[in-house]
């Protein structure tokens, strides 16, 4: 294919990605070092109230935004260097918390709280998703051909559901005396309040995520199980291998590329955990990195959006993505070299 034809085919897509992915990245990078805010002036205001014989006058200094001729607030953009990053990271508070050795104090700083939860969420759900996915795939593979279709249909439902809605539906089952909380209370014979402390909410979020992603893993592993060489399994049986040995020595190595693929996708996606915080209305207890950026971007009560802080927290989030991507890129590069 000639370069010219190639460009014609690929051009529109590249243009969209440059315009709407690469350019915003630059904009975020720039914004994280600059702050745009209204210009304030301090004026001396004398206010007098009527009193007996003479007025009582007080003068005070007031800060107010400067307005231009059109009555719009004048804004100016200022280079602040790493100041915004310092505001987001709150290093001095972190330092204090570290010297006092108090974990709870660290957990009061938004960024570190979000980072802690995001990493823990990612690492805890990863093995569960792979494990449950593999289990479900083998169960489906074991079922008779007649029921496989309906079973796959039901399995796809948690995967396909809108994440916010999925989290909400789990939320409704547990919130207050929801049906599953009532069941757990009856079963454990004790009173439960699942939304009153952070760790139970985190647990529910992880349960939700595993429920949501395990079907995806299961479908992929199920497809992989169809290509396991039956002859080698059969000869393993004849050699006296137990079921566990067959699973460990034949099936899992065969599925290994798929397991790595699922793990990679899951790492990328769960690092971006966000919808759970919205769906569980957990922002008072648990927040994630992406939610932090979202919160900065939302207008506050005065209608201002902290674009600069959001950009800084977005840049910090991307450091994590870069770390996650290195092994994936290495693998793709190796494959590419291998195919040529």
């Amino acid at each position: 294919m000639k370069p010219r034809v190639f460009a014609a085919f690929v051009g529109p897509s590249i243009l969209m990605m440059l315009l709407f992915i690469a350019f915003p990245l630059l904009s975020v990078f720039w914004n994280s070092f600059n702050v745009t805010q209204p210009v304030y002036e301090t004026v001396e205001v004398e206010s007098c109230t009527a009193g007996f014989l003479e007025q009582t006058c007080t003068t005070e200094m007031k800060t107010r935004p400067i307005l231009d001729e059109a009555g719009e607030i004048v804004r100016q953009t200022e280079f602040v260097g790493l100041q915004t990053y310092r505001n987001v990271l709150e290093l001095d508070r972190l330092g204090e918390a570290l010297t006092s050795g108090s974990w709870a104090a660290i957990q009061n700083i938004d960024f570190w709280k979000a980072l802690r939860f995001t990493i823990m969420f990612t690492l805890v759900t990863l093995p569960l998703v792979v494990g449950f996915g593999l289990g479900i795939a083998m169960l489906i593979n074991n079922a008779s051909k007649l029921i496989r279709g309906p079973v796959i249909f039901v399995s796809l439902l948690p995967f396909i559901i809108t994440p916010v809605i999925g989290a909400l539906s789990i939320n409704w089952l547990f919130r207050g005396d929801g049906i599953l909380t009532a069941f757990l209370e009856w079963w454990l014979a004790r009173d439960l309040a699942l939304f009153a402390q952070a760790w139970t909410i985190e647990l529910l979020m992880m349960v939700y995520r595993v429920w949501h992603v395990a079907p995806f893993a299961a479908i992929i592993f199920y497809a992989g199980l169809q290509t396991v060489n039956q002859d080698s399994i059969e000869s393993a049986v004849i050699d006296g291998a137990s079921r566990w040995q067959r699973l460990r020595l034949i099936i899992i190595p065969h599925l290994m590329p798929l397991i790595i693929f699922v793990a990679m996708i899951h790492l990328m996606d769960s690092y971006r955990v966000f919808e759970e915080v919205v769906g569980f209305r957990a922002e008072g207890y648990v927040i994630s990195l992406q939610w932090l950026t979202y919160d900065f971007l939302k207008p506050d009560q005065a209608g201002n959006r902290s674009i600069s802080r959001a950009s800084a927290s977005a840049m910090l989030t991307m450091i994590g993505i870069a770390i996650l991507l290195v092994p994936l890129l290495k693998r793709t590069w190796r494959d590419h070299k291998g195919t040529r």
């Binding site: 709407f20 992915i21 350019f23 915003p24 990245l25 630059l26 904009s27 975020v28 914004n31 690092y271 971006r272 966000f274 990195l289 992406q290 950026t293 979202y294 900065f296 971007l297 674009i307 959001a310 950009s311 977005a314 840049m315 989030t317 991307m318 993505i321």
Partner: peptide, 9 residues
């Protein structure tokens, strides 16, 4: 990339 990064842009 997290989508919030892009939206911030």
């Amino acid at each position: 990339l997290p989508h919030s990064v892009l939206v911030a842009g």
